[in-house]
Amino acid sequence: MKIAVCVKQVPDSETRINLAAPAAKLDQTGFTRVLNPYDAYAVEEAVRIKEARGGEITAITVGPETVRETLKKDCLAVGCDKAIIINDPLLAGADDAAIADVLCAALKKDNYDLILFGIKAIDDDSGQVGILVAEKLGLPHVSTITKLELGEGTLTAHREIEGGKEIVDCPLPAVLTCQKGLNEPRLPSLPNIMKAGMKPMQIVTCADLGVTPPAALVEIRQYSPPPARGTCRLVTGDDAAAAARELARVLNEEAKVI
């Protein structure tokens, strides 16, 4: 079974965004970069499938050369067999649709039975690329899966929905986007990290893939800091009941969270 896992390197989830005022660009220097945590579920699922049925896993990413360490440690060292890095200055500022086009070009170079994504990347929180790729490749997709069973040429996946799940049957090849709960990703062992350096890692450009990234469909106008989290506003009332009623009102009418 040939499996592709499309991954992204993102700033660590705890990264502090230093943005005092609206700005056209986000200064991302000095950020610690890690594998997108949702992609780790995709990688783990691919490795489990490989362990159960055999096969080959290719990790594919779009990003600068600095993604090598992440690919090595979090993909190759835990069981992926090879990695492809699509690195091209043309992709600076590429939007989801452009990334999806470029990934499609890379995916078409081989016949994958299964293409896995994380549900979203924790930097742009967009969560579209997997679905866009499926559509562009003319493949069926199941998004937000929390359970996967493979049959012969088919799969059954649990898709998380509000307050429940859909059980979806789908033929292979297919595209899946993986949600937390699907599995517990393993950690790489040190010898495997060391050995991962020997696994093939290919760096390609858009020209190599024969694709010209399309112009962005979405333009970024500006980044802005979130409304300041002020000091805690203490809600009071004549008694507990009054305070509770006031709190419920504030949450409903002002914070608009209930």
């Binding site: 742009d124 929180d125 469909l217 333009e219 970024i220 106008r221 980044y223 802005s224 979130p226």
Partner: peptide, 23 residues
């Protein structure tokens, strides 16, 4: 259109403009 959305788990917001119709 000016669309505002949170990124980085809400630590920052971004205003984006779709360049197609529909969007």
């Amino acid at each position: 259109w000016d669309v505002r959305r949170p990124v980085f788990a809400g630590k920052c917001f971004v205003d984006v403009v779709p360049k197609t119709a529909p969007a």
